[in-house]
Amino acid sequence: MQVRVDAAGSDSVILSAPLGPNVNHKSTAFGGSISTLGILAAWSLVHLRLLDEGMVCEVVIQSNQMDYDRPITGLFTAASSLPDPAAWPSFIKTLTRRRLARIEACSELIFGETVVGRLRGRFVAFLQEA
């Protein structure tokens, strides 16, 4: 996929990928690549925030919904965020208590200056032994 990290922080992770290795038979970005970039950005956000909390966790995706609004014909980007940042403290409390917790993260897929798709995923974190 040739994914590149453009920015990574506690509020968002931004990843990009060129069209070339992600092209389909219609000369647009392959839907699987678009979805994967969105998942990677959202997963990375959850992972980085857990590291910031000093928590060693395994993070996996449980489910996701992807909406494709427009075709992509060049370099595309996924910018992740938490749809409900206020849910984070409860997520951490549950993770600490039960050693397992779920949280939603989302990504906007961008081509040029336009949002061309949206991903919403549910991620599960499993607290590991330190």
Rank of each mutant, 00 (worst) to 15 (best):
M1R: 14
Q2M: 12
V3E: 10
V3N: 01
R4E: 07
V5M: 10
V5Y: 01
V5C: 09
A7K: 06
A7Y: 00
G9I: 03
S10L: 04
S10K: 09
D11A: 08
V13H: 00
I14W: 02
S16Q: 05
A17S: 09
A17K: 07
P18S: 08
P18N: 04
P18F: 01
P18L: 06
P18A: 09
G20P: 05
G20E: 13
P21K: 06
P21Y: 00
V23C: 05
N24E: 05
N24M: 03
H25Y: 08
K26R: 07
S27G: 10
S27D: 10
T28A: 06
T28N: 06
T28R: 06
A29N: 04
A29P: 06
G31H: 05
G31K: 07
S33F: 00
I34K: 03
I34Y: 01
I34A: 00
S35C: 04
S35A: 15
T36Y: 07
T36A: 13
T36I: 02
T36S: 14
G38C: 04
L40H: 12
L40P: 06
A42W: 00
A42C: 00
V46S: 03
H47Y: 07
L48T: 03
L50F: 05
L50A: 03
G54E: 02
G54W: 05
M55T: 12
C57L: 03
C57H: 09
E58V: 07
V60K: 08
I61A: 02
S63P: 02
N64G: 02
N64I: 08
Q65V: 12
Q65W: 01
M66A: 01
M66G: 02
R70H: 08
R70D: 07
T73M: 05
T73I: 05
G74V: 07
L75A: 03
L75I: 12
F76A: 14
F76H: 11
T77P: 06
T77I: 03
A79I: 11
L82H: 12
L82P: 09
P83M: 04
D84N: 13
P89C: 13
P89S: 10
S90A: 14
F91D: 10
I92V: 15
I92Y: 06
I92F: 11
T94S: 14
T96W: 05
T96A: 12
T96E: 14
R98V: 10
R99P: 11
R99Y: 02
A101M: 05
A101L: 09
R102A: 10
I103N: 00
I103S: 11
A105N: 03
C106L: 07
S107D: 09
E108W: 01
L109H: 12
F111R: 05
G112C: 04
G112I: 05
G112N: 14
E113N: 14
T114D: 11
V115P: 10
V115T: 15
V115C: 11
G117W: 03
G117P: 14
R118I: 15
R120S: 15
R120C: 10
R120M: 08
G121C: 08
R122W: 00
R122S: 13
F123M: 12
F123D: 13
V124E: 07
F126T: 15
L127F: 13
L127A: 15
E129N: 13
E129C: 11
A130G: 15
A130C: 13
